[in-house]
Nucleic acid binder design. Sequence first.
RNA 1: GCCAAGGUGGCAGAAUGGUUAAUGCGGCGGACUGCAGAUCCGCUUCCUGGGGGUUCGAUUCCCUCCCUUGGCUCCA
Length: 479
Amino acid sequence: MRKFQVYDSLAREVREFAPLVPPRVGIFVCGLTPYAPAHVGHGRGFVVFDMVARALRRWGYRVLYVQTVTNVDDKVIARAAEEGADPLALSDRYFREYLECAEALGIRSTNYYAYATDHVPDIIAQVQALVDRGFGYVASDGSVYFSVARFPGYGRLSGQKVAALQPGARVERDERKQAPEDFVLWKAARPGEPSWESPWGPGRPGWHIEDTAITGRIFGPRYDLHGGGLDLIFPHHEAEIAQAESATGEAPLVNYWMHWGLLNMGGEKMSKSIGNVSSLEGAIETHGAAVLRFYYLNAHYRSSIEFDPQSSLREAGEAYATLARPADRLFDLLHADGPERAGADLPSARADAAEALVEQLDQTLAQDFNSREAIALLFGWSRRLAEDLGSLERLSGPALEQLASPYRWGQDVLGLFERAADGRGGVGGAVVAVLLQARQRARARGDFAEADRIRQELRAAGVVLEDDATGTRWSAVRD
RNA sequence: GCCAAGGUGGCAGAAUGGUUAAUGCGGCGGACUGCAGAUCCGCUUCCUGGGGGUUCGAUUCCCUCCCUUGGCUCCA
């Protein structure tokens, strides 16, 4: 297991990571509340944690990565009422849409997406434990609240003091609560809303309880790593700590808290409630999932980033094209001829440099997941390879693999450099190859009118040609 | 008001108690090319919010002020 360091929001410092039960690592991330299409801001944290899980697995940890889906809550219910739809069907539909985006983005390290509604018995059991231990109280209408005053550690994660909070400023006072800072564990049912039977009558889970009920079920009272957006620290993560540690009597609930920075647009955070959203699906369609993934990882996960719909992904696309070009060329050659292809060996200095770079990439990422710095190193490698792109043809399969090893690292950990399904195979690819040969013969005899005609007709069919020193390359484009 | 995270070149965005503060985008110049396009090379040395302090030396550590964002409602 490779050692690594991570910034822990609770300790407010970078700490050496040590699992509770090596080599196992339990990772939990607060996922979506699917009541509307996912936006570009949502994708960031999930890509970041996908990278975290990939890295830990590469480094020898056995990761169990769980993410919640808050498929029943006030917003889901309100939205369903607007559309005249069933709340659970609505959240299910939006979540499936998100999963398609996640798949395109190469997010595939999550082991389990836990729907809140699939864990109602766990939730009820945890609420009951809190009532039994005197941390929860039942209000007249059958709702159950957590008594913040009973938990002295409340506010430690966020730095907030209960006395300094401003209840009533933005949240309505609620006479069912004993104190304004108390939060709801179980909400009594209202007519027409989804509800489940409980010892306190029909109702549904409160805002924070599902996460700790689910992690309790899967990891037990304590686990290693919890991730989420910066905006969830208070009250959500604070409430998780309070209710879980009170329910089990064990602490700390989480050994390392990781919070990623938010994605802003127009100077404030992208948010469904503000309305400054750019849809995730749309961004993937117009710029490609690889470019979006590159954009996210091209900044340190803790910084906030400013998203400009006009330029951010266009710039990222230019940069990613430069970065990935040598990788594409290497993988093309390996794909065409296989790893056994004959050719020259790599000079040993070059081979050593590749090996050293891979180690450096791991070390860089092990420093609080500095993906930006890792990408800068990969740019350095691409720049060196760019100089001799033309002479790659001479190299053997193993030599090409050595040159490609930093990009293999990028595939493995960052999820970049994946070869898209480019339509080059099959009958279509064979036909294009024949046309390219015909065009090449025309060029050779100086019949440029014919050569250009072939190029134009292929373009009309969605195939773009580019000539360079090594010949003609083609790619399928979408219009 | 209180809490938290930040303020780096035209832009995006790293790092560091000490030679020219990454990397990319953009810009400029050149090479290559039948043409397109793309690519490659070079340049872009005057960038670390203001003011104090510690130090031989601070952008990095400390104090303070200003500003931005997030949180004190649901929120990735």
